[in-house]
Simulated assay, not measured.
Amino acid sequence: MSLHFSVLASGSTGNAILVSDGEHSLLVDAGLSGKQMEALFQQVNRNIPDLSGILVTHEHSDHIKGLGVLARKYKLPIFANEKTWNAMDGLIGNINTEQKFHFEIGQTKSFGQLEVESFGVSHDAAEPMFYVFHQGSKKLTLITDTGYVSDRMKGTIKNSDMYVFESNHDVEMLRMGRYPWSIKRRILSDVGHVSNEDAALAMADVIGDQTKRIYLAHLSQDNNMKEIARMSVAQVLQQKDINVEDNILLCDTDPKRPTDIVYV
């Protein structure tokens, strides 16, 4: 049994990440339609009924679009904090009481040998949070949908083997793009999304001897490109004397295609 994952989809059109240790499998967010989620599972040869539950990060539609459908169809437990549960009321349909579980910020829940630690992020949602997965000495961090990465967050996610890390936008592309200023201001704010450069600066503070791969996630389809994100992050990391060619692999995610199953 070893820790592994696939970023099934990542971007403003929908987000979902599958994490498993072989005994227990967990889905983090279900931000695409039920049919799309089923197709993504088929592409990575995994079965939705095998899930031990769905972990919710926050109530925005690109993270919960298919949540209610999947939970009802497959009788899956859902884990979210109280404020997120309240915010999802009316958005995901009726969920049976026995499928509703509370998972608050700062808690750690155990699924067999797989431990899941939650931590708060800075985003314009009720009480957004993301997750660190621990199995033995292995550590996988998922962190997107945050306007900045605080010292508290860095302390929690430091020296992970692998990261799924937000690299949402190129600042100049965003500033020059077609979005109304109100949306640009929201994205650039402390409760929006981190840019390529700010993500890289945070990465430089948390990368440790264990770190092998970083998956750049939640890229804006209008204000970023995979090549620009990789180049921008690599440039900042190299300036910080972190060798991305020999020591750390920067990897893409996609809004429609899952990554290969990756063993941590």
Rank of each mutant, 00 (worst) to 15 (best):
Y163E: 03
Q42S: 14
R46H: 08
A126V: 04
V28K: 04
I17G: 00
L32I: 10
S25V: 06
N196H: 15
A87V: 02
K100A: 12
G106N: 07
L76F: 09
R257T: 14
H218Q: 13
Q235D: 14
S195M: 09
Y148Q: 11
D151S: 13
T141A: 15
I242C: 13
H58E: 08
L51E: 00
L67S: 05
I54N: 01
K154N: 09
R46N: 07
V149L: 03
N224I: 04
G155E: 07
N168V: 08
G155P: 00
S25G: 14
E104S: 11
R186H: 11
I248F: 11
S220D: 09
K158N: 08
K65C: 01
T156M: 04
V132I: 08
N47M: 13
S195D: 08
G155K: 08
V132C: 08
L55C: 05
D260Y: 11
Q36R: 13
D241R: 14
L18W: 05
I214P: 02
K154S: 07
I54P: 00
V264G: 07
N86F: 03
L26F: 07
P128I: 08
V164E: 00
V28T: 08
L51T: 02
S12H: 09
N168R: 03
I261A: 03
Q221E: 15
I78S: 00
E59Q: 11
L188M: 15
Q107V: 09
A202C: 10
H4Y: 10
A30G: 01
N247D: 13
K184Q: 06
Y163Q: 03
E117D: 09
T13N: 11
T108L: 05
P255N: 13
Q210F: 06
G34A: 13
L3G: 00
K212E: 09
E23L: 15
S61I: 08
L55V: 04
T97P: 01
V121W: 00
F79K: 00
Y131K: 04
S137Q: 12
N86D: 12
G11H: 05
K256Q: 10
S150V: 06
G31P: 01
T156R: 01
L250K: 06
K139R: 12
M225C: 11
D29E: 14
L114R: 01
S160G: 12
D50A: 13
M203H: 06
F111Y: 12
I207Y: 03
H60M: 05
I242N: 10
G106Y: 10
D89Y: 04
V121L: 05
D190C: 11
A71I: 04
E227V: 14
S122N: 14
V69Y: 10
F130V: 00
M173E: 08
N223S: 15
L55D: 00
N247S: 15
E127I: 00
E104H: 11
G31D: 02
G66C: 07
D89G: 04
G68M: 08
D254I: 11
T141L: 06
V132N: 00
A87M: 03
G68A: 09
A204S: 15
V262S: 02
H102P: 03
S2E: 14
L91T: 07
G90H: 03
A199F: 06
K83S: 11
K256I: 08
D161I: 03
Y179C: 00
V194A: 05
Y179F: 12
S150H: 02
V194N: 02
L249W: 06
G31I: 05
K226I: 13
D170C: 13
A204R: 07
H218P: 01
K65R: 14
N223R: 04
M37I: 12
M1S: 15
S10N: 12
Q235A: 14
